[in-house]
């Protein structure tokens, strides 16, 4: 079993159009590094020096990883990881 990672439309250019890809790792950070080894540049869109980018949401199953330790959030085989850009904006 692997970890299924669901990719949002705007990042599917990195995954040759795939809506979901399989990955391995025991934390969200490791999963993203594993993905980057095959889909170069993807991680950079999600993570900066400080951790997950402010307007990127990552979920393990139903849980936003911000409440689970961010990149350190644990994942296990069979889990589903979903990446969704925030829908946000405003007058600023």
């Amino acid at each position: 079993m692997a970890i299924e990672v669901r990719i949002p439309t705007i990042l599917r250019s990195y995954t040759a159009g795939a809506k979901s890809v399989d990955a391995a790792g025991s934390t969200v950070g490791e999963v993203l590094e594993d993905l980057d080894s095959r889909f170069s540049g993807l991680r950079e869109r999600l993570v900066d020096e400080a951790g997950l980018r402010r307007f990127i949401n990552v979920y393990v199953n139903d849980e936003d990883v911000r409440f689970m330790g961010g990149l350190a959030a644990p994942v296990a085989d069979g889990d589903s990881v979903t990446v969704l850009p925030a829908v946000a904006g405003g007058r600023g």
Partner: peptide
């Protein structure tokens, strides 16, 4: 219609759990 989690006159953001449910 979605809830503006920011509840702000200058910013909007879909609540993160609502966003996941929506997609």
């Amino acid at each position: 219609p979605m809830v503006n989690a920011a509840r702000s006159p200058t910013f909007y953001e879909f609540d993160s759990a609502d966003l996941l449910r929506l997609y």
